[in-house]
């Protein structure tokens, strides 16, 4: 049986109190900016980060790993859904684009 090769990922969640979209960086901090997130290149590391996030359930909610690719400024979305989560809705500048 063939297994799909591991693709790079970022760990994301929403802040429990506020609901804001956040990403896990390499220093265990939750950051708002996707570019500062840790791009996870190895499967074992991904499992570790997910376990770490799940243990932080009093800070974040709905943690999951999602595919990202390396870009000039840091991780970039592969799928448009993560693109919207990273920038905000397209009808109002009410998401992260407000602070950008």
């Amino acid at each position: 049986m063939s297994r799909r090769p591991f693709t790079p990922k970022v760990l994301t969640a929403n802040l429990l109190r506020e609901g804001d979209v956040v990403y896990l960086d390499a220093t265990d901090a939750w950051v708002a900016d996707l570019h500062r997130a840790e791009l996870i290149e190895h499967e074992a590391r991904a499992a570790d980060r997910l376990a770490f996030a799940e243990a932080q359930s009093s800070r974040v909610v709905g943690a999951y790993l999602t595919d990202m690719k390396a870009g000039p400024n840091g991780p970039e979305p592969v799928h448009f859904r993560e693109g919207f989560r990273a920038t905000g809705p397209s009808n109002y500048p009410h998401g992260k684009q407000a602070g950008a």
């Binding site: 929403n14 506020e18 804001d20 979209v21 809705p89």
Partner: peptide, 14 residues
């Protein structure tokens, strides 16, 4: 409990 009170988690926020 939150769903019973109309509170969802969406993409960007609750």
């Amino acid at each position: 409990l939150r769903l019973m009170n109309g509170v969802y988690l969406q993409l960007h926020a609750y």
